[in-house]
Design a protein around this nucleic acid. Structure first.
Length: 154
DNA sequence: GCCAACGTTGGC
DNA sequence: GCCAACGTTGGC
């Protein structure tokens, strides 16, 4: 399958692009939304490109690039009673939630504001804007090309 | 902190 | 299977 692209939201306190850069990679655990789950479980593959998005901050937007480097595997936190992501209905034989591995690739010189993207021809139809609260959304190849070629930000 | 959007839950 | 109530997300 051809390489695909995604936008993944993260709250930079504490999961910022700097945090990802420092750890190099992370398991994307804790997603508890079926649409996002289905993207990870059924569509995401190693090598896919990721726009790393900072949400719930003064200037939400794309803070960097990442790549899917493994997965999906069952999200271990669903089996841990003490985890905030514990799901009593999930069992190892019938896991409900999945996680992919996300690896750091690049940090933007400056966050590309979502508001700017919304006004940029070619980006205004991004799924990010259509499904505002979804934490993982697909990105079209032409949108990826546009965002990653905004020279002033990279 | 407010609130609109919308996903999830549970009673029927 | 419907839908009201409720909870969460996230921009502002």
């Amino acid at each position: 399958m051809a390489k695909q692209y995604w936008l993944m939201k993260s709250e930079p306190d504490p999961y910022s692009i700097d945090w990802l850069k420092k750890g190099k990679k992370t398991r994307w655990e804790g997603v508890r939304n079926y649409t996002a789950r289905n993207f990870m479980r059924d569509k995401m593959r190693t090598g896919d490109g990721v726009l790393y998005y900072h949400s719930s901050v003064a200037v939400p937007g794309v803070a960097g690039l990442a790549e899917i480097t493994a997965g999906p595997v069952p999200d271990a936190t669903q089996f841990e009673p003490k985890s905030p992501y514990y799901d009593p209905k999930a069992t190892p034989n019938a896991p409900r939630w999945f996680a992919v591995e996300v690896s750091f690739r690049k940090k933007a010189r400056e966050v590309i504001p979502a508001m700017l993207m919304r006004q940029t021809p070619g980006l205004e139809r991004m799924e990010l804007f259509r499904q505002g609260r979804l934490s993982i959304t697909p990105v079209r190849p032409e949108e990826w090309k546009l965002v990653t070629s905004m020279k002033e930000y990279w």
